[in-house]
């Protein structure tokens, strides 16, 4: 009897120790990666990053890449936020239990995990090639094409969060509004959206955090630019692509600049994800 008890006890202790070890492994990697980025990034930090362009290589900075990333990220959000919010609203309000709704929801989840490089290929086919032939080569790779690719990354995040957030709004609120004779569109826009606003904004910020760090879909859409370009139809530089190129280079000065860029992106993305947690800490939403 006591032998069994001891065995069970030992097993239990072992499980607890291993579980604690697991959490330590997870935290070690987090701290390791963040620490390396922080140390290397700070030691390479320099105001030149913001004032000089990448054309000067080791003597240059990242200003055009930073500007390019900001422009493309904003355009991407401007494209995917309205579509995503409306599509999410549709799923929650008009198709919460229909077969069509279930299909869209499933396909949205697929899009959420779709390899981003394949989405980049898709945008190359539907935006870059047509715009090249339509404009006679004047517009080929462009910041706009990059934005469309990024929008495809952000879209499913917004759809999913909006869907889940709208479903959290109590039914009584809908019934109260409808019983006052308000049409559905007004009820949705003015009552439900207001109630779910913080959740929807969370979704948009999460989408921004996700697409800001994407490299793969930009490789054959935005192309890259060594000079400052602010026109969305020009080839445009971006921070992740600049980091990718500099990392592939053996020159240690370029590595240092890449680390500084990596620190910028990481800080931006982590700040966004922490902000979303503050904004919406009441109910956790899964965004796997």
């Amino acid at each position: 009897m006591s032998a069994i008890y001891t065995r069970r006890h030992i097993k239990n202790i072992a499980a607890k120790v291993l579980a604690t070890a697991a959490i330590i492994i997870g935290l070690v990697f987090l701290v390791w990666i963040l620490w390396i980025t922080l140390v290397n990034g700070i030691s390479a930090f320099n105001w030149r990053l913001f004032t000089k362009i990448t054309a000067y290589g080791p003597d240059g900075g990242l200003s055009n890449a930073i500007v390019g990333s900001l422009i493309m990220d904003l355009i991407a959000i401007a494209i995917c936020a309205p579509i995503g919010v409306l599509a999410g609203t549709y799923l929650a309000e008009c198709a919460s239990s229909s077969k069509f709704g279930a299909t869209v929801r499933f396909l949205n989840d697929i899009l959420l995990s779709a390899p981003s490089i394949v989405l980049g290929l898709f945008v190359y086919v539907i935006v870059v090639i047509p715009s090249t032939s339509l404009s006679g080569g004047a517009v080929s790779f462009s910041g706009f094409a990059g934005s469309v690719a990024l929008a495809l990354i952000g879209l499913p995040v917004i759809v999913r969060t909006t869907d889940e957030m709208m479903q959290l709004v109590p039914t009584t609120l809908r019934e109260a509004a409808l019983s006052l004779g308000i049409p559905q569109w007004k009820m949705t826009l003015q009552v439900l959206m207001r109630a779910a606003m913080s959740g929807i904004i969370t979704g948009i910020l999460l989408a921004l955090a996700r697409l800001a760090g994407e490299t793969a879909p930009l490789l054959f859409t935005a192309f890259g630019n060594n000079y400052m370009s602010v026109h969305p139809l020009d080839k445009m530089a971006s921070l992740p692509v600049a980091i990718y190129q500099y990392t592939n280079d053996p020159n240690p000065t370029l590595h240092a600049i890449a680390w500084a860029g990596a620190l910028l992106i990481t800080l931006f993305v982590l700040a966004l994800s922490l902000l979303t947690r503050l904004l919406f800490s009441r109910k956790k939403v899964s965004y796997d």
Binding site: S131, S135, F144
Partner: peptide
């Protein structure tokens, strides 16, 4: 597909005007 094409075409025409104005960017 179609709307995107036409949007790009319009924007492309607009940008060609802008591009000839300043310095030339070649790729």
């Amino acid at each position: 597909f179609k709307s995107m094409k036409s949007r790009i075409a319009v924007a492309a025409a607009a940008s060609m005007i802008c591009m000839t104005a300043g310095a030339t960017d070649i790729t």
